[in-house]
Nucleic acid binder design. Structure first.
Lengths: 233, 233
DNA sequence: GAGTGGTCTAGACCACAAT
DNA sequence: TTGTGGTCTAGACCACTCC
């Protein structure tokens, strides 16, 4: 939470940002107009406008003349490095997608899982494109952050896709490395033991609270992560 | 080049941005004050300020009260995904750094090297940390974009570090994958054939012009790419 | 037609750091 | 001390688009 810093326009921006990131204002909800916010904060329209423009640049709100401003529907595609929605990517290629849940259990966080605490859902599953294994996924979900997850079986929707659609506005840290496949991993991915895998490990927070940890293993030659950056404008 | 769009403040921003990205205004150079720009563009200070604040947010300029605004020294660390300065990383860890140039030749771009054209410098070298191979690098440099590179032997400084310091404000696209080491690659990196390598392939432009292409192979377990994103503020 | 955002103006006061 | 940026105000006109 952070709606109490610095200048007035930063404070306005922070307060609204907190409401959105915490989930209190759901996607699609109307944001007060600049005139209303002028009243609420007792300031000029330029000051409100600065805050709202910043939120729009960030992609947190969408602004339309005459209609007003609204909490944006979260874009899955970050400009710089996707949180890959594997399901959506496979479907977009025209292949059949399936998520095979291999293991599902509830347990307490272990000490070494510093990022997460308390009651967890631990999942292992395989993303399948057509009939070809696409990625092996191990995931922990904090039930403190996402209690609704406790009741799901993730048969129709992968945990990643479900989280993307139900817990918007998260922050994430990715670690990317290459590993040789263990015997078990090789078997599940239909590769030879020792084959090169791209390992993506990601921790995700919402409004400072840990939400999920995931490690995805991709057959290296079959998957490229693309990250582009440069002038936005 | 893009200094001719939209609103007045966008135009101001665009014109200055072009001057910086093209290299015409070198890092450290003083940017005209808001008062001067008000005169040049015949507008109010708020309009100039909006443009300059945006440039500062982008990291292209640094603003200091009383002193003025200056073209920023390029930060090697992008907020989202580094263009890794391998040399700096190794030195920062307190290890000795060495770049062994294995091959260096000039040649014309081939048809399949769509990104680059004309006269190229083609390099192969090994980044060494202490006495341990750290990364194998193949690189092409466009001599049309960077004619100064023709005269360098890259004995003291790796090509990547040299480019980072001499060709600022580039845009880049990274592709990241995992591959098994070929016999030659394994030999140079002192690994077993087939060992998992993290492959980072990057193309870089400056002001729309291709500058360099590079492919770096890291022993997978020894190197992590970290990419973090979320609220800036 | 009227409500909303998009942009701009002319002016103001303040904080800061270089001189 | 003084030039510079940082922020804000109160007002304005315009463009768009929903009603």
């Amino acid at each position: 939470m952070s709606g109490a810093e610095g200048t007035l326009s930063q404070r306005i921006r922070g307060e609204i940002e907190d409401l959105i990131r915490s989930g209190a204002w759901a996607p699609g909800r109307k944001v007060p107009s600049e005139l209303e916010l002028m009243g609420q904060f007792g300031c000029s329209r330029m000051t409100v406008n600065k805050a709202m423009s910043a939120l729009a640049d960030e992609g947190l709100i969408v602004r339309r003349r005459r209609a007003g401003s609204f909490v944006a529907r979260p874009r899955v595609h970050s400009a710089v490095l996707d949180i890959p929605d594997i399901q959506a990517e496979i479907v977009a290629r025209g292949e059949a997608y399936r998520f095979d849940l291999l293991d599902r259990r509830r347990r307490e966080a272990r000490a070494e899982e510093a990022a997460l605490a308390g009651d967890l859902l631990a999942l292992r599953g395989l993303h399948v494109a057509g009939d070809r294994p696409f990625a092996l996924e191990d995931r922990l979900i904090s039930l403190a952050a996402v209690p609704e997850a406790a009741g799901l079986d993730f048969a129709d929707e992968s945990p990643g896709a479900w989280l993307l659609h139900h817990v918007p506005w998260t922050e994430a840290e990715n670690r990317i490395s290459a590993v040789g496949a263990s015997g078990e991993e090789a078997r599940l991915l239909a590769l030879d033991e020792g084959a090169a895998l791209l390992a993506v490990e990601r921790r995700t927070w919402r409004a400072g609270e840990p939400v999920t940890w995931v490690r995805q293993l991709f057959p290296g030659e079959a998957y490229d992560l693309v990250a582009r950056f440069g002038p936005a404008r």
